[in-house]
């Protein structure tokens, strides 16, 4: 069982310092449950952040050096061709850059391997990989697929190991020149990000301003309904009716 984890040249979301991104470290963690030795793969100008993953349980890092702004896919494909892993894991999004989350899909497409997104648990039994996929609201889906495959990891996967200097010192880095692949599409215009207000997606949205205002203040602010000292039965009924009204409980089957 040979597992390769794709590592991005990630930056810490707050400090902006080179720092491995959480889902990639969680991927290392999942991979270590399948095999003792886990390798990492990074294609990019420098591997400082990816090198940090060595302290989080990665035994070996393969770095393919390509100029900044080049497409890493050809280099990754070449490295995967020579490493011949059974499983390639990736984070949900890269830890820096455009963060479209598209690369694992392009990789799977180019390799002709199946891809499963948002894994929280992995198990292998005789060449068959079982993936537990996280879906919204805590739902889970089980995939069974033949290896090789590409799997991305969800933040709900088990927490990554903390940094250990001893492990980092033992990690090996193999560096090689990658395949330059300048992107033909023009780079997008970039500006400093300014958070936009979340638009209120209530029933009143799109209606008059006053209705929108009322909807906004009722949803967020105080001033809900208060029942003082009802009988337990009244209280129970009021709660159930309220839960149904907001759609948390399904309508009673008998009605």
């Amino acid at each position: 069982m040979k597992t390769l984890v794709l590592l991005s040249d990630a930056r810490h979301p707050v400090s902006g310092r080179p720092a491995p991104t959480a889902t990639e470290l969680q991927a290392i963690n999942l991979a270590r449950g399948l095999a003792d030795e886990v390798s990492g793969l990074h294609a990019g100008p420098d591997a400082e952040a990816a090198r940090g993953a060595l302290g989080h349980g990665l035994a070996r890092l393969e770095h393919r050096e390509i100029p900044a702004g080049h497409d890493p896919l050809p280099s990754l494909l070449a490295a995967i061709g020579s490493e011949a892993p059974d499983l390639v894991l990736a984070g949900r999004r890269a830890g820096a850059g455009a963060q479209t989350g598209l690369l694992p899909y392009r990789l799977a497409e180019a390799l002709g391997w199946p891809i499963v997104a948002d894994a929280v648990a992995l198990a292998v039994d005789g060449g068959v990989l079982e993936v537990i996929q996280a879906l919204p609201k805590g739902a889970r889906r089980r995939w069974r697929l033949r290896l090789p495959a590409v799997v991305t990891v969800h933040p709900a996967a088990p927490a990554a190991a903390s940094f250990a200097l001893g492990t980092a010192r033992k990690g090996q880095v193999g560096a090689a020149i990658g395949i330059p692949a300048p992107l033909d599409e023009p780079a997008m215009e970039e500006r400093p990000y300014r958070p936009r207000p979340r638009l209120i997606a209530s029933a009143a949205a799109g209606a008059g301003a006053a209705e929108r205002l009322r909807a906004a203040t009722q949803a967020a602010g105080p001033g809900g309904r208060v029942m003082v000292d009802p009988s337990p039965e009244e209280a129970a009924q009021a709660i159930l009716d309220h839960l149904r009204a907001i759609g948390v409980l399904k309508p009673a089957s008998g009605r």
């Binding site: 810490h12 707050v14 400090s15 310092r17 720092a19 940090g52 927490a159 990554a160 190991a161 903390s162 940094f163």
Partner: peptide
Amino acid sequence: AIPALSESRYAE
């Protein structure tokens, strides 16, 4: 303690 150590390391 893992988040505290990680953030100490990467966010100082």
